[in-house]
Simulated scan of single mutants.
Amino acid sequence: MAEGGDGVAQQAELRRIEGNACFKKARLGAAIDCYTEAIALCPDVAVYWMNRALCHFRRKEWAKVEEDSRRALALDDTLVKGHYLLGSALLDKEEFALAIKEFEKALNLLKSANSTDKMAEDIWQVLAKAKYLDWEKHSTERVWRIQSLKEACESALQEHHFLSGTLVEDSDGSSNEYSEQIKMLSEVFSKATLADTPVDVPDYLCCQITFEIFRDPVITPSGVTYERAVLLEHLDKVGNFDPVTREPLKEHQLVPNLAIKEAVQAYLKEHSWAYRLN
């Protein structure tokens, strides 16, 4: 029985290898067939489900991506790609909050493994998109509710002053109690919508090269803070010097700017619209 089991596992692995070859050649249909055969032989191997989900991802067949990535994660919840693909499928369904959770799980797994996987950038991009879309959806709802409440309050205030005979403006054109209360009401509701009103992100929270909000800020010996990935690219392709001060600079001299990172996280928590990508 053991030999028979080993034989089945070997056949499944051969189908996976063949599927990988087809995938590299963009023969997605053939790759799906190979992974499907591998799954039929060994349904408890997470990577087979994961590979087939990736094929569906390339085809944008989101329902199938969700189904296969869920099956893969049920077998192995530490699959970074599994959470990324599931999040992408949920994002397509506009289930933003659930998508955000999956993308954050993927990033946390990479972080806990101290991985420098290039996939981290892709995950951050879709996470930012999901958070912005989630803010946009709820912001629209909040603005509508606030506007409805404002109109109801104005109507109630007008009715109150009409019944009390204080609705007419003073003859000298000066403000009366009714107009003052309407003005105060408008100010209150204007402040209530400030958090949902996009403005320019403060300069100190943005990289001096990209002018985008920081994700992984590092500070140089010259005291200038940059986005790590962007600065590393500068050092590699342009030269070993600080882009602003022109002082000599090597990678080992970079220090994480934890204060700015915490400030960015606090700002994004209060202003989710800032996740909007440039």
Rank of each mutant, 00 (worst) to 15 (best):
R27Q: 10
S272D: 08
K81H: 12
S186Y: 03
E187Y: 00
L235N: 06
E94V: 12
F57H: 15
T116S: 12
A63L: 13
V126D: 02
F23V: 03
L91S: 10
K269T: 14
E212D: 11
F241S: 11
E154G: 08
N240D: 08
L258T: 11
G7H: 04
G239I: 03
L79D: 00
L249E: 12
T210C: 01
R59M: 15
A2P: 01
T166S: 14
N278E: 13
L127C: 04
A72E: 01
Y267M: 06
A12Q: 00
Y48H: 04
K24Q: 13
N114M: 07
D134E: 15
L79Y: 05
V188G: 00
N20R: 07
M119D: 06
L85A: 09
K81G: 15
L73N: 07
D242F: 06
E262M: 10
N114A: 10
G82A: 10
I182C: 13
E37R: 15
S139I: 03
T220A: 10
T166Q: 13
V199Y: 03
E102H: 13
L249C: 10
A192V: 07
S190A: 10
L235P: 00
G239T: 02
P198C: 02
Y275G: 09
L110Y: 06
Y84H: 09
K64N: 11
E270Q: 15
F211P: 00
V143D: 08
T197G: 06
D77W: 10
R16D: 01
K129N: 12
V224S: 00
E13S: 07
E121Q: 12
F189M: 09
A38Q: 04
G165I: 06
G87V: 03
N176E: 06
L254C: 08
A259P: 00
D236F: 09
L90A: 02
Y204K: 04
C206I: 04
Q10V: 04
L231D: 09
V65N: 10
A192E: 03
E102D: 14
V218F: 12
T193W: 01
V47R: 01
L249K: 07
Q208R: 14
D196A: 03
N51T: 03
E121L: 08
C55Y: 07
S164G: 03
K269N: 14
P256L: 02
L86W: 02
R16L: 02
L14Y: 05
D92K: 15
N20Y: 05
R276V: 08
A46V: 04
V238I: 12
V199K: 14
I209R: 00
G4M: 14
I209T: 06
V126P: 00
E13R: 11
